[in-house]
Nucleic acid binder design. Structure first.
Lengths: 211, 211
DNA sequence: TCACATCCTGACCGTATGGTCAAGAAGTAG
DNA sequence: CTACTTCTTGACCATACGGTCAGGATGTGA
């Protein structure tokens, strides 16, 4: 006998609703910016009355904060690849792949992040100053080690990191421009692969890490 | 005898006020986004009463449109360098310099542009589809010629352009993040030079255009 | 000087938005 | 079953915003 649609438990209800709201909020914040987003729009997209949003998230700011924090977590996770790699070809190559994949699968998140930083990080400045600074210093050390081991050219690790972020996130943040220049169509699988290959090729060769 | 402060002519008044308003608007739109910006904030920054803004620019949209169009013009101008260059080292090198300089001197403009594109270009979509497409195709042809002449590797010109845009504009759009990672201080002259040098070095070597 | 066009601005208006609330529906635990 | 906690939602509120307008100030051209 198939499981009947028994009523959801309170815990499940809460989890599910928070998930639905956060998902809708990310989309709306990405498309309209914080100022342009309205609770009503988010509510409609989530399929809930507006008052229900305020039951789970007291204010628009609180909801936005949660969205940004979730994105930041994703962002950091993509970087684990970096540490275990024996050299720049594997490490940076895999990092580019991972970040390009995020840009493809999760463009709204990338846009919200970009918007937040562009507006001087009113909500996550403390994260930038602590977690991001630590993370960056750690990766810079890894890159410096590769340089010392002669596995790549003497490049300022800082600017290399900026370049990696800029290039990979560009495919999400400026995805609309890229689509327009692609005749109005989203990039195909092959085009995404070509993009990844181009980025990896130029950067890895550019830092003297290939062949 | 020094020129007395004679009253401004109507024409001068109009020019000056439009300039002041557009300048303030660019800053506010960059910092708050279109939705977050208010006419009152722009008016305060411009030092004019709000009603005066509506005298020169009928609506918030009209004002925003003018700001974005001005930025787009700047953006295109930076590209003339491209055409006269004998090869990628000079052409792309100078283009990177020019765009980095814009990012440094004119970060608000870059942010407004980024925001506009991120929100699916509600205001300048027609420009993207015409002027930008033409411009891009022209530059792609130049790059392809360099490839055919053996002056650089066989790289998809499209992705190279995206990389140039992404990397150079990153220093404006994510300037706040970069400052935070720089200990909270704006980049010094030397640091800007180092940034330019890193970007040029990695890209030019990465496309096989150096030595 | 005078008639006119342009510029200026405080006061005002309609609307949309973030947020509240009270009363009821629905799951829960003893 | 009962007392409870949690969830739901239409109606409501105060505020802030984009935009208007009338009437005065200021430059202009004859």
């Amino acid at each position: 006998m198939p499981q009947t649609a028994r009523p959801l438990s309170k815990k499940e209800i809460r989890q599910e609703n928070e998930r639905v709201i956060l998902e809708a909020a990310e989309k709306v914040f990405a498309e309209a910016g914080f100022g342009g987003a309205t609770m009503q729009l988010i509510a409609d997209l989530a399929g809930l009355p507006k008052a229900n949003l305020h039951y789970y998230f007291p204010t628009k700011e609180a909801l936005y904060r949660q969205v940004v924090q979730a994105i930041f977590q994703d962002w950091l996770k993509a970087a684990d690849i970096f540490d275990d790699a024996p050299g720049p070809v594997e490490g940076i190559g895999a990092y580019i792949d991972a970040k390009m994949e995020i840009s493809r699968r999760h463009p709204a998140g990338s846009k919200v992040w970009a918007s937040e930083v562009m507006h001087r990080a009113p909500v996550i400045q403390d994260y930038l100053e602590t977690t991001l600074v630590e993370w960056t210093e750690g990766r810079m050390a890894v890159i410096q080690r590769w340089i010392d081991e002669g596995k790549m050219d003497q490049i300022d690790p800082r600017h290399l990191l900026y370049m990696l972020w800029a290039t990979t996130q560009h495919y999400a943040d400026f995805g609309h421009q890229i689509e327009t220049l692609n005749g109005g169509a989203a990039l195909s699988d092959d085009q995404w692969e070509a993009a990844k290959a181009s980025v990896k090729s130029i950067i890895l060769k550019g830092i003297g890490a290939e062949s």
